[in-house]
Simulated scan of single mutants.
Amino acid sequence: MKTIKFHKSDCGVEILLNVLNQYDLKDGYLSSDVYNTDYFEIAFIKKAEGGLLLNQKYISLSENTILFISPFQKRKWMVNEKDLELTLLIFQEDFLNEFFADKLFAYRLFYFYQLDLSLSLHQPGNEMTRICEMLSEIKNELIIPKPDSSHIIRSLVYYLLQKLNRAYALQNDLSLKLPENNFAYQYKQLLEKHISTHQRIDDYVKMLGLSRISINAAVKKQFNVTATHMLKQRLLFEIKNLLIHANKTVSEIAYDLQFSEPTHLMRFFKKQTQMTIGQFLDEYKHAIS
């Protein structure tokens, strides 16, 4: 599978962020083939006809839609490029870590690494226009950098990401209260890094040095789901990705993910999805055809 990588030289300055419109996109970005990227993307769509298959789910695109795509999430565009007006904000995780001095910043945003809720957000036309003006301002600072450009870019990006987080939280009835600690975000980060080799809550209890009760309370308060639910959804997502893209048998996937028997994986899958693996694959093939 093709992976499109971030290139700092594309934006003309030594910064792990860029703003692109559809005319700046490299060949293959709007490909009808499945691919991924090694960076975060927020797609601001002012006009579109068609859809996007993302995280094994089909998103119907319409005007004034915002899409949130995390690194290495697979996607397949099914759009009419002639009727597309698209602006992309792209950046690598190191940009967030370095610019905001917070290694958990990406995990504090509800829309990144999101598995339960929609990865799209609809905004009024006037708000989308305001956002696109802000993106143009960021682009100008990248193209013609000045001594204080990094400060302006940092403030604009921080404001934009937080405003989108607020809108996403309101759309999905999520709490914006400041957490008492970082336990929920640390747990979410560890799931992204270790789900292939660690599938038990007790594994994360040891990694975090916390009690199961403390982890569950933090996750429930911040994300409105249990820690167990979050782990199972992340494991299910990993299984689906391997089934679709890895060209491996169920037995091989079960071995890779440390299930003791392939039947245990199949039972887990059926319990979480109410579908057999065969039914899931048939439904996926139908969605991309």
Rank of each mutant, 00 (worst) to 15 (best):
199 Q>T: 05
240 K>I: 04
191 L>C: 11
228 T>K: 12
205 V>M: 05
216 N>F: 02
233 Q>A: 13
244 I>D: 06
198 H>V: 02
176 L>M: 15
184 A>E: 08
234 R>M: 15
176 L>Q: 15
214 S>P: 08
221 K>D: 12
230 M>F: 03
177 K>T: 15
180 E>A: 15
245 H>M: 02
215 I>R: 02
223 F>R: 00
247 N>L: 05
228 T>L: 10
224 N>H: 13
206 K>S: 10
223 F>Q: 10
219 V>Q: 01
244 I>L: 12
234 R>I: 01
197 T>E: 14
211 S>R: 06
180 E>I: 09
213 I>D: 01
240 K>L: 02
249 T>Y: 08
194 H>G: 02
247 N>Q: 15
228 T>C: 03
195 I>S: 06
182 N>Y: 12
218 A>M: 06
220 K>C: 03
232 K>C: 05
241 N>D: 09
183 F>D: 13
196 S>L: 11
226 T>Q: 11
219 V>F: 08
183 F>R: 14
202 D>K: 11
232 K>W: 00
184 A>C: 12
225 V>L: 13
193 K>P: 07
232 K>A: 02
242 L>W: 01
213 I>W: 01
188 K>Q: 14
195 I>K: 10
242 L>V: 01
177 K>Q: 15
184 A>L: 13
245 H>R: 10
239 I>M: 08
208 L>T: 01
195 I>H: 04
209 G>K: 01
221 K>V: 00
237 F>Y: 15
209 G>V: 00
216 N>S: 03
216 N>K: 03
248 K>M: 14
180 E>V: 14
195 I>F: 01
182 N>M: 15
212 R>Y: 00
239 I>G: 06
241 N>G: 14
243 L>W: 10
249 T>H: 06
218 A>K: 03
249 T>Q: 07
249 T>G: 12
195 I>M: 08
208 L>Q: 06
221 K>G: 01
232 K>N: 14
199 Q>M: 05
205 V>C: 08
246 A>R: 04
238 E>S: 11
205 V>P: 02
221 K>Q: 08
226 T>D: 02
240 K>T: 04
187 Y>S: 04
207 M>T: 04
247 N>H: 15
190 L>G: 06
244 I>Y: 06
223 F>S: 06
216 N>Y: 04
214 S>G: 09
248 K>V: 05
189 Q>I: 07
246 A>Y: 04
201 I>N: 00
231 L>Q: 09
198 H>W: 05
193 K>W: 03
179 P>A: 13
198 H>S: 03
219 V>G: 11
199 Q>S: 14
177 K>Y: 14
216 N>G: 00
233 Q>K: 14
239 I>W: 04
245 H>G: 02
193 K>I: 11
236 L>W: 06
184 A>K: 11
213 I>F: 10
229 H>A: 12
241 N>T: 10
243 L>G: 13
182 N>E: 15
197 T>F: 07
236 L>I: 02
229 H>N: 13
208 L>M: 11
205 V>W: 02
226 T>L: 05
233 Q>V: 08
192 E>P: 02
